[in-house]
């Protein structure tokens, strides 16, 4: 497991959190429709961010621990 993979996941994590919360993409997400499962889109967007971040954090944790194991 290369160190660059951990770093790549880290950069992906940072890019996702910034893109979804601090760029004009947020403004584009500010709409009621489409409403998947009936949920207004903006509510779904804001609810999806924590879930996506959690998945990336778990991925980062796994990759970095695999890297640690391969080093030892």
């Amino acid at each position: 497991m290369s160190r660059s993979l951990t770093q790549r996941v880290l950069w992906l994590l940072m890019a996702v959190v910034i893109a979804m919360t601090a760029t004009p993409i947020v403004i584009l997400a500010n709409r009621i429709t489409p409403s998947p499962l009936g949920v207004p889109f903006f509510l779904l967007w804001c609810g999806a961010i924590p879930l996506l971040l959690w998945i990336l954090m778990v991925l980062h944790s796994r990759v970095s621990s695999l890297e640690g194991e391969s080093k030892s």
């Binding site: 959190v17 903006f42 509510l43 804001c46 609810g47 961010i49 971040l53 959690w54 954090m57």
Partner: peptide, 19 residues
Amino acid sequence: GIGWIFAFTSTAISGLVFY
């Protein structure tokens, strides 16, 4: 209105800080 739901994202970012 729903403007308050920045709290979802801010709490998620705080979790990232904690992590």
